[in-house]
Amino acid sequence: MSQKRNLFFLSFPTTFALLVMFAAPMLYILIHTLREDGLTYFVKFLTDSFYLNILKTTVSIALRTTGILLLLGYPTAYFLARTKSKLKNTMMIIILFPFLVSAVVRSYGWMVILGNKGLLNQFLLALGLIDTPLKIMYTSNAVIIGLVHLLLPYMILSITGVIQGIDKNLEYAAASLGCNPLRAFFKVLLPLSIPGIISGCTLVFTLSMTAYVTPRLLGGANFRMMSTMVFQEVNVNFNWGLASAISYILMFVILLFLVIFNFATAGINQRVGGQKNA
């Protein structure tokens, strides 16, 4: 009896707060949008190639960022998980430290480096490697560089935790059975670390889809992603109906990808499980 009462008193305040301040507003505005404009703006978004291209850019940037993050994050995570170096704690601090620095500050750092008169161009011009400054700022490349920097810690941490849980002896066993390192990696380590890869990829994909500060500062006014578009519709075009539609479409697309990732995980788990039995 008293357990039920305790459970109620402990969980009620947060449940109530989230219902009133989060769930109800999200639902109310969706209904309000549909009531006021029906599906007008949803249809407008989904039939106009201008808007569809923004969605395409957003997904493409998020996929490319996720891919680069995996390529950089996995080896780093492996090294961190396996190293016995005394510097491990220092390395952890270097990886975690940017994680705690504002996205505004980090984007600013990249602006100083990547700008037309930025440090990178000064350096390359001084070396005589280029004659005219490279145009990196305000392109999708700048946005991807910024996002990779923003999200690397998430990817590294997701995978490090999982690799640390994999017995190092399995790698030795594979080697002693005549696997070369590459084959041992693909047959033993990679399949076992898939949970970390999936959770890391899901996390960084979602975060790059919804990033706002980085595309705004590094992409500039003419670079449009879904999140910056919401802001533009609100503050520049004053089209709240369209802003609503973009917000909910973004949520829906992310949900869709999460479902796909989930199915993919289930499929991969089955295959890995099957191999183990074979």
Binding site: P75, T76, M91, V101, G109, V112, I113, P181
Partner: peptide, 23 residues
């Protein structure tokens, strides 16, 4: 075996610190 991850790790650490040091 651990040379490749080591090199990537060093590059990643430099990449992570670069904008902060520049600031």
């Amino acid at each position: 075996v651990s040379l490749f991850p080591k090199i990537i790790t060093i590059l990643v650490l430099i990449f992570l610190m670069a904008p902060l040091l520049v600031i």
